[in-house]
Design a protein around this nucleic acid. Structure first.
Length: 479
DNA sequence: CCTGGAGTTGTCCTA
DNA sequence: TTAGGACAACTCCAG
């Protein structure tokens, strides 16, 4: 221990050293830096991290700990308890962090900042994970936007300053020697059953993995992003979402790095489209900030009387990828095995759950929360509200995805379905997306017997579509 | 205050 | 085979 007062850097959703404003400011202060992470399930309540996220977090903390020369100190418990106590214990001169925007975190961090300042400490928060911070964006009349396009075009791009420049990784930094906290294993982030084997093969959590992913995407993915992004059978999307969620890379870096390539007019369109996806992430956070009830409450309250069905069996079959609709089942199994699902397929399985099965979007939200490595309160809530049609800027109710059409359109050779639904792999491509309509001899040749090797459809498409349309219409009639 | 145009991602039927 | 319109208003947004 020393008499020098450290500056605590409280890492949260910013598990990186490059472009980390809080970390850089701490280093610049000249004081030795004490990096800290707190696993705070208590404050998170029902939004405590799910299983897939915990696996990712374990690996990410491992990576950060290494990059900090083994000096990342880990704690578990309520941060409004842990942080002020720790600051007291090491006589911290300052406590720096990058802002988070979940309602429970805002509430908690506000209390912590106040307590620290009352104790006479230098408590500072920085912009680390949003390009355009929610309080700074409003319409001319001061109220928040509810529609994406004007939010993004006018609110983000046309007015106000552009996203801040990135902050370099400090060339060298002095770390505070201290043995407080627990070992990584002590956080209990990894499950007892080792189900994450395929996730280990699929992902490289941590800052280095994130940088490598961005590099690969900028080099290969932008050529055909606009149309390729809809194809789950291709490697056309960035797959940066889990890295972004944990802040292993900043949206600012992604933004500026992508912009820097825009001089090449052959891909300018693709870049704009990619950047607008970052815009959607911003919009989700914006909605969550201004409507903190977004995770559980229909933004359009007429949906409060929507006639959702209650069907445990159907829900379980959706979760396990046993609906009998190959593109849906492929998506649900990709999720289960890899902690990820291609965005196009997320829409298909979401539409299927909410519209064809008529099950409440909360069920989908909860399942995604537990199984997605990129589970993110803002994105998850906003997206489920969108697909259910009850959000601020939602899909029209008559937009019901047909899983057969979608499969044929976006997985035309069937590579995606064959990969995740191997029991159908031998079916000819033209029958792959609708095995129940396939002639018996073709099924037999492919070694498929419906309801034995692969389920018959859980619902009839046409009938369930009509049922959904009637349910949505009932919201209007009942008024 | 009024008004007109617009709104991520579809599907199905008909001519 | 393919292209166009219906599907439903409603709310949001900006001039």
């Amino acid at each position: 221990m020393s008499d020098v007062k450290p500056v605590i850097v409280w890492f949260r959703q910013d598990l990186r050293l490059f472009d980390n404003p809080a970390f850089s400011a701490a280093v610049r202060s000249g004081a030795p830096v004490m990096p800290v992470y707190v696993l705070d399930d208590d404050s998170a309540g029902e939004w405590a991290m799910g299983a897939a996220s915990r696996w990712w977090l374990h690996r990410s903390l491992e990576s950060l700990h290494k990059d900090l020369g083994g000096h990342l100190r880990l704690f578990q418990g309520k941060a409004d308890d842990v942080i002020p106590r720790l600051a007291d214990r090491v006589s911290a001169g300052g406590i720096y962090w990058n802002r988070c925007y979940e309602p429970w975190r805002i509430a908690r961090d506000t209390i912590i900042k106040k307590a620290l300042i009352e104790d006479g400490r230098d408590a500072q928060s920085f912009n680390g994970s949003l390009l355009f911070e929610p309080p700074n964006i409003a319409k001319a009349d001061g109220t928040p936007y509810k529609v994406f396009t004007p939010f993004y075009r006018k609110g983000c791009l046309a007015s106000g300053p552009p996203p801040r420049e990135v902050v370099d990784r400090p060339a060298d930094f002095r770390l505070y020697e201290h043995d407080a906290g627990t070992e990584l294993e002590g956080l209990g982030l990894l499950p007892d059953i080792r189900w994450y084997g395929e996730m280990e093969n699929t992902w490289s959590p941590g800052e280095h993995g994130a940088q490598a992913r961005l590099d690969a995407f900028l080099e290969q993915g932008l050529q055909d992003y606009r149309s390729g992004r809809n194809r789950p059978d291709k490697e056309a999307v960035s797959r940066l979402s889990p890295h972004l969620h944990f802040g292993e890379i900043s949206p600012h870096q992604i933004w500026h790095d992508a912009k820097a390539l825009a001089g090449d007019s052959s891909i300018a369109d693709n870049i704009d489209h990619f950047l607008s996806e970052l815009g959607w992430r911003e919009f989700s956070y914006y909605l969550l900030y201004h409507w903190p009830e977004l995770p559980r409450t229909n933004l359009q309250n007429k949906f409060d009387r929507f006639p959702w069905r209650d069907d445990t069996n159907a829900l379980e079959r959706w979760q396990r990828g046993l609906t009998g609709y190959p593109i849906v089942d492929a998506g649900m199994r990709e999720l289960w095995r890899t902690g990820y699902m291609h965005n196009r397929v997320r829409m298909i399985v979401g539409s299927f759950l909410v519209k064809n099965l008529l099950l409440h979007w909360h069920h989908g939200e909860d399942w995604f929360w537990d199984t997605l490595a990129d589970a993110d309160l803002a994105n998850n809530s906003a997206s489920w509200q969108w697909i259910a049609g009850c959000g601020a800027d939602a899909a029209p109710y008559f937009r019901i995805f047909n899983p057969v059409t979608q499969g044929q359109k976006f997985d035309p050779q069937g590579a995606y379905v064959r990969r995740y639904v191997p029991e159908l792999a031998k079916l000819p491509t033209r029958h792959l997306h609708n095995p129940w309509e396939t002639p018996a001899d073709v099924l037999a040749d492919a070694g498929v017997k419906l309801d034995e090797h692969y389920p018959a459809p859980i619902v009839d498409l046409k009938a369930s579509r009509e049922r959904a349309l009637a349910a949505f219409r009932s919201l209007k009639d009942a008024q």
